[in-house]
């Protein structure tokens, strides 16, 4: 197991270098950051040249990349064009997004798994068909539609919650955005749980559990759920990485100043240090989340052993 973790961590190095270089290359090579800095006005050539020099923009790309990586590892992600350091942007954005992700994951676990278990155990019944249809709708409708509809319904019409989130973004304001963010994954969790439960209900070992004279509750929780939730738990694990970076639409709708919001702003303004910095962190989060999921899988299913 220890050796497996080390091997996986070592594998992360080339993936990390490759993906960050790709982002670096795309962001820096395809736009002129100095022109972007000045907006619509044409910059004074002398000033522009000076800035280019300061930012090492005249160096070859690989040299810029190495310089950037060196700075990253000393904790310096550079400065955004508005003068704020990228690290301070991250410091304010990540906690917000983490809170949003937590809310979303809680929805996925509670609602998704509950619906999945119910439908999985009542296959073909009206509840099952109804929920299945609902998940299909949720999966088909894009987030910006469900987001705006729910925002209008609960925020504007019913006034159960504020339509937009304050900069501090406390948990209670994140309930609706969290739900919106979770919806699609929630539908997948429901379907995955349903299939898994349905499959395991027919398994031989479940018949054994019944033949042992175990009470129904124990059969369901200890034997059925314990086995059925293995794929679900791993899906949710992977989803953490996805939700952290994929909240751009939701954060825009509810005006949440999280990672997605900052990334969006960065891309819009061709703000290279912000974009590269945030994406680099997201790559790391994604890689770590995947590693954790793989390890969790081995913990949950004793048949899987990594050597």
């Amino acid at each position: 197991m220890g050796r497996y973790v080390i091997r996986r961590l070592l594998q992360m190095i080339p993936v990390f270098i490759g993906s960050t270089f790709l982002i670096f290359f795309m962001v820096y090579a395809l736009g002129d950051p100095v022109a972007a800095l000045f907006g619509d006005r044409a910059p004074d050539p002398a000033t522009a040249a000076q800035i280019r020099n300061e930012l090492h923009l005249n160096d070859p790309l690989w040299k810029q990349y190495l310089l950037y990586m060196k700075n990253i590892f000393s904790g310096d992600f550079g400065t955004a064009f508005n003068g704020q350091s990228v690290t301070s942007l991250m410091g304010s954005a990540f906690p917000v997004t983490i809170r949003l992700t937590i809310v979303a994951i809680i929805f996925e676990i509670i609602i998704g798994i509950t619906l999945g278990v119910i439908t999985g155990m009542r296959r073909g019944k009206p509840v099952d068909t109804g929920v299945l249809l609902l998940t299909l709708i949720v999966i088909s409708v894009p987030t910006f539609v469900t987001g705006y509809v729910l925002q209008y319904l609960f925020g504007v019409q019913l006034k159960w919650t504020a339509p937009s989130v304050s900069p501090e973004a406390p948990f209670n304001e994140l309930i609706l955005p969290g739900l919106v963010l979770a919806l699609v994954s929630l539908a997948y969790v429901t379907r995955l749980t349903r299939t898994s439960i349905a499959e395991n209900t027919r398994a031989d070992y479940l018949r054994t559990a019944v033949a042992k004279g175990l009470p129904r509750r124990r059969i369901i929780i200890r034997h059925l759920l314990r086995n059925s939730l293995i794929p679900v738990v791993t899906f949710i694990g992977t989803d953490v990485g996805f939700l952290m970076g994929g909240a751009i639409v939701t954060e825009r709708i509810f005006n949440i100043h999280g990672v997605g919001f900052q990334l969006y702003q960065g891309i819009l303004r061709n703000n290279a240090p912000t974009v590269v910095g945030f994406v680099t962190i997201l790559v790391l989060v994604f890689l770590l989340a995947n590693l954790l999921v793989d390890l969790l899988y081995a913990v949950l299913d004793p048949r899987i052993r990594y050597a």
Binding site: D204, Y205, T208, R226, N227, L300, R303
Partner: peptide, 11 residues
């Protein structure tokens, strides 16, 4: 049961 591998709970 016949096939103990599938009749016993794997986890």
């Amino acid at each position: 049961f016949q096939d103990a591998l599938s009749a016993l709970n794997p986890v």
